[in-house]
Each structure stands twice: as structure tokens, then as C-alpha cells.
Amino acid sequence: MLGKTAGGLYWMFRFLERSENTARLLEAGFRMALTRSSDAESEWKSVVTTSGAGAGYAQKYDSYSDTLVMDWLLRDPDNPSSVISVTSSARDNARLVRTALTTEVWEAVNDNWMTLRDLLKEPITTVDLPGVLATVRQQSALVRGALYGTMLRNDIYDFARIGTFIERADNTARIIDVKYYTLLPSALAVGSSLDNVQWEMILRSVSAHRCFRWLDETDMTATAIADFLIFDKRLPRSLAFCVKQTTENLRYLEQEYQERHPCHDLADRLKRWVASTDIDMVFDLGLHEVITEFIRDNNALSAQIEQDFRFMA
């Protein structure tokens, strides 16, 4: 496979994953703002920060409100991570790698772009928001379904999956990082209604608010939630799950190409870290420090993959 094609697949699926993550984040923020009108501004600000596009936003706007944030995250072409930007980038990459995709996957991506382009033509009102977000989620489910259902399990699939899970790990880590202070087991606010709302928001932004209740018989505590998001291998958006998937797909590539690269070592190191660490150790070291380091390692892994598989000349 061409290095460029591998890169196109990797980025196509990073962008697709990002569009879904942005939609989910917006949904959680919207709900939060509805529940606690008093401090809506700071909640919207944390949504923008979590999305990773805070600097661009601050350049353009002075305040944080539902209308502005919704527009920035959904339809602003100045925001490279807005839903419309990433949807269009995903499609550009799909065109680039068209020969590596089944007709079903290509048509799903193309349809995704056409649908969202029409849907996001005009500014979105809060009344329309739930419907728009549902469409974004539904569209990316269609792409994923086409990928699972029709693609050969070969290197093409591996690069698609690696892009998905590198992006997802980054996203979950950033959610934890922005909200880390609400996850600290502080004596003061334990069990306060403030914490409950914050925790609900975090769980919602990884679509895990219901799973958490299914899985955990104990009460909602900061430690339990942090443990769940970082270490639970059953949760498809936990750091542990993403690391496991990335490592696995990298291992398939190692077998198929009969070649081991530095990125394999980096991924294995992350995997060992997950296996040898527990939530108490994380709090001992400092949640913020641990997550910051994870984000850095995950980015380094991404850069190494790009280099090892020759995405660019």
C-alpha cells in the first residue's frame, strides 16, 4: 500500500471519530447548561477547551454562549475541528484513498458529507440541536457499519482502526483533563449536587452515563468514574480500551509486513503502563500530571506511526 494511502486512511478515520466526539461533547454541554443556568458561561468555555479549539475561539469571540459555541463547534469553517470541517476533511481523505475503500464505505462517507453540508448550511438553533446531533451520530454509525460489514481485514483496515483509536484516546484524555478537578477525591465536595452534575456531564460526553450505572453497583464517586474512564477494558472509549485496540492493530501490521518499528515499542510501553497501574497510583502521582503525560505519549505514538509507515515523503 502507498504510504500516502495509509496516511489518508488514518486521517480519514481520525476526522470521522472527531466529528462524533465533538457532537457528543456539545450534547453534554447543552444538557449541562440547561441544568445549571447560573454558570453556563464557564461550562460552555470548558466545552470549547475540551474540543481542542479553544485558542481559535478566543481569537474570534469574547464571550461564551450556547449560540456562539454551537456555531463554532458545528459549522464554523475557521475551526478546523468543527463538525463541518472534519466531515469535509474526512471526505477529502476518502477521495484520496478511494481505491482502498469499498463502494459502501465511500458512499457512506460521501453521503455523510452531503447530508451534513445541507444540514449545517444555516445557523442551528437550540431547538434544532438535538436533531442535528442525532444525525451526526447516525451518519458516523453508518460509516462505521459499512467499514465493519464490507472491508477486508488487512492493512487498510488496520490503519483505519488505528486512526480511530488514537483520536478517541486523545478525546477521552482531554475530557478527563479539562474536568480533572471535579474528579479529585476532595473531602469538601463529596456527594454534593455540584459533583453529581459534573460527573454526569463527563460520562455523557463519552456516552457512558448509562453503562456506568449498569456496571457499577457502588455509588457514583470520583475515583470510580476516573477508574472507569481510564482503566475499564469494557468501555469502548476508555484509555485502556483504545490502547488495547491500537496495540492490536499495530501488531497485525507487524505480522503482515514482517517488520517491527519504533511505534510498536511506543505502543507496547503504553500498554504496559495500563497493565501495571491502578487508579490509586494515578491519584498518588496526580491525575492531571498522569493525563497530561498520556496525551503527550499518545501524540508521540501518532507521529511515530506516520514516520514508520511513510505517510509522507
Binding site: M1, L2, G3, K4, A6, D155, L253, Y257, E259, F309, R310, A313
Partner: peptide, 12 residues
């Protein structure tokens, strides 16, 4: 590359 035209693949 070595007097031929070669394309950059994931394996060289």
C-alpha cells in the same frame, strides 16, 4: 531509485 521509478509504500 536505482535507475527505476519507485513508489513510496508503507513497506518502503
Amino acid at each position: 531509485v536505482d535507475g527505476r521509478i519507485a513508489m513510496r509504500t508503507t513497506q518502503g
